[in-house]
Write a protein that binds this DNA or RNA. Sequence first.
DNA 1: CGAGTAGTTGACATCTCTCAATGCCGGTGG
DNA 2: CCACCGGCATTGAGAGATGTCAACTACTCG
Lengths: 261, 261
Amino acid sequence: MTAATETTVKTVRFLPPGAVALRAPAAPVKTQCSTCHLRELCLPAGMSEVDLTRLDQLSFTRRKIKAGETLYREGDKFTYIYAVRSGTLKSSLMLSDGREQVSGFHIAGELVGLDGVAQGRHASAAMALEDSEVCAISYAALTELAVSTSGMQHIVSRMMSREILREHSLMMLLGSMHAEERLAAFLLNLSQRYAARGYSDREFHLRMSRAEIGSYLGMKLETVSRAFSAFQQQGMLEVDKRHIRITDLEELKRRFDVRVH
Amino acid sequence: MTAATETTVKTVRFLPPGAVALRAPAAPVKTQCSTCHLRELCLPAGMSEVDLTRLDQLSFTRRKIKAGETLYREGDKFTYIYAVRSGTLKSSLMLSDGREQVSGFHIAGELVGLDGVAQGRHASAAMALEDSEVCAISYAALTELAVSTSGMQHIVSRMMSREILREHSLMMLLGSMHAEERLAAFLLNLSQRYAARGYSDREFHLRMSRAEIGSYLGMKLETVSRAFSAFQQQGMLEVDKRHIRITDLEELKRRFDVRVH
DNA sequence: CGAGTAGTTGACATCTCTCAATGCCGGTGG
DNA sequence: CCACCGGCATTGAGAGATGTCAACTACTCG
């Protein structure tokens, strides 16, 4: 994880506009939740054994997406929600004048695409930041299963509510935090999610550019860069491009948490 | 609507800390969706006639809340979602150091409290900005009904997805818009919601203070005030404290929508 | 080796915040 | 009844934070 390389990212991500839109071909591999190593984190998190076996009635199509390819775009018909198996995705919203707001970064075990439920169309776009793999979960099949399986109807709503909570914290961040607090919050959040997956919480490789971080945090890339440098100077971080080592996690937490002003 | 008075608001809203926490007494009035004048906008929006009658199996407890009282606070056990019948609520999040982020203003026909589903506790607080009335909808009863009623299981998830969309636009706003754009977006959004309820889209009375608007939009109350003044000088608005008249709605839309930068 | 991209840093511009003063309004108490 | 007080809103001046623009480095790709 830590030493991951990003070999072909650049060339793939910045093809001419038309080319980028290509869908990844659906790889017809079928997958079940009960045997998945991500089951503790993903859709089935917190489900009973019984429900988990019921969930296996659905078998998910796996799909590989290369770095820079999109899973869906705003306005696309909503059919699937996606669970990230490996890699990193970003989802983003577009303003009519072209301004982009990154609304989330998603790693293994996280769900993407829930915003499509309301209107049957996706309101955001999802793109792979590195070569990635997802499970495509038919939303129709999922809700149908939820009807026949008491105790499971909560799954869908609970995961949506989690999404609401996630967005809450982003709103908090965007609405009432300063640049350095935002970056600290971002890093701590990542750190925690990596830790939950068995990776180091102090050392990781960012999959996104400074501009993407900035878009997510509501600030310009230069400000992101300066905040990284400031943390480094304050001895909390060692930064080498996208390689991050948190040398004083406690201080970072402290600074993020309180900050009365 | 337009000429509404706010007689006792102030004295009620700023009681000593302890007193504010009082719950509104539950008024044991029962209500059904099928006969509600808000059914086009509220929970049953888009439901079939058949499902609507099924929904009447649930009868909702109405509850009056006075201005300044809270419906729930962060950490409270999640039992109900609430549909606003009349009045205005705000929901807000708190940072550990006391900073508040208003996450939404809710008027008739809108739902409040969905963030509680994920963890069984409310992550935000909801407070009445004026004397208001809500329907308390048992979430357990609602999901139970959804199980037995095919075609209805979507209702809950769809309303949650709508909440996700709502938060998306707030994120967009907070993350990538300037102060005046934010205020314009806010006013246009309000205008549209009032219009959907049969009120004027050009003239209305704000129920919230400048500070609350500012907290919602991620800016200070002075900046809100200045933005109002700027719009007024530019001939788009007439502002008298909380009374707003949009004199050039088209210009306001134009300015908000494009703004290439 | 040249071109293009990502990241860092500096100088300066601009926007928003902070602090302070003022006016207005309604409620309260003398 | 009226003076006063507190909360809300507006406005100005100056401070501080972030954005903008530009230069430079490092790296990768062709």
